[in-house]
């Protein structure tokens, strides 16, 4: 008995050790740098290194470019994320339950996922260069990000067991009730996840805008949080960069935790 227990323990230890490479890398390249960012956000500058409490945060939160960037980033979420999700839902519904030959079109919707932004920003630039508006950026975001949602959503739709449908249909359920009672609960977690992913991807939109405008100083309407951070990096303004980085990650942390709490609450 004792021998068996020891063996079990060592298996578990081995499993834990499997995490080590990834953990070490994460620690070196993500966790430790993040702690450094927090530290930088609390000091006056990297030479004197005096703690100034939340002074940097007060400066950043009243900085007009930071507020502009924050507004633009949030606007992108509010406008684009629902469009992406609804578009992806409709497309994947039809792809999962529609006529057979329609399914062949799926590759066209997913393809943008792998197309490098640099290749596509050119055509965007030649077509939309004369428009002074943020709409081309939104279109680029929607074009690029609908694919991954479709992949994940169709996987969820096709995971619904057809036998369940048959059983429910025999019990006399109509198509609408069928989907409401069976499909929706099974697909809901994925819809949540996909929404979360798209929100988060909207925070990652930098190269799209950068390559589209080809400059570090885009028009006001396209100036996002990533730009604010990128430009402070180029200006070597460590404190502004660190502070906005901490604020951005707090925002994302809040969104992710909130999303997961919602998912727990409504999907069980």
């Amino acid at each position: 008995m004792k021998v068996k227990r020891k063996k079990h323990l060592s298996w578990n230890v081995k499993c834990i050790l499997c995490l080590a490479p990834s953990l070490l890398g994460t620690l070196a390249f993500f966790a430790a740098p993040f702690i450094r960012v927090v530290y930088y956000s609390l000091i006056d500058n990297q030479f004197r290194r005096n703690f100034v409490g939340f002074d940097n945060y007060m400066d950043t939160l009243t900085n007009k470019y930071f507020l502009l960037a924050l507004k633009n980033s949030l606007l992108l979420i509010v406008i684009c994320v629902p469009i992406v999700i609804i578009l992806a839902l409709i497309i994947s519904l039809v792809l999962s339950y529609g006529i057979k030959w329609i399914r062949k079109t799926r590759a066209a919707f997913v393809l943008p996922l792998v197309i490098p932004t640099a290749s596509i920003a050119l055509i965007w630039h030649s077509v939309f260069a004369s428009f002074d508006s943020v709409i081309p950026v939104y279109l680029l975001f929607i074009w690029k990000n609908t694919g991954i949602c479709i992949v994940l959503l169709t996987a969820a739709f096709t995971a619904v067991d057809p036998a369940l449908f048959e059983a429910a249909r025999l019990d006399g359920a109509g198509t609408f009730t069928l989907h409401k009672k069976i499909t929706v609960p099974i697909v809901m977690p994925t819809v949540f996840f996909v929404s979360l992913l798209t929100i988060v991807n909207s925070f990652k939109i930098f190269k799209e805008i950068y390559l589209y405008y080809g400059t570090n100083y885009p028009p006001d309407h396209s100036y996002t949080l990533q730009y604010y951070m990128n430009n402070n990096f180029l200006k070597l303004d460590y404190q502004s960069l660190a502070t906005s980085a901490v604020l951005t990650s707090l925002l994302i942390f809040g969104i992710v935790m909130g999303g997961m709490a919602l998912q727990k609450r409504y999907c069980q």
Binding site: F34, R36, V37, K204, Q226, T248, S249
Partner: peptide
């Protein structure tokens, strides 16, 4: 971590 934009840790990454 998967959801963080690159710019959040770009500075300390650079310094590291």
């Amino acid at each position: 971590l998967m959801m963080m934009p690159l710019q959040v840790t770009i500075l300390p990454n650079y310094i590291g």
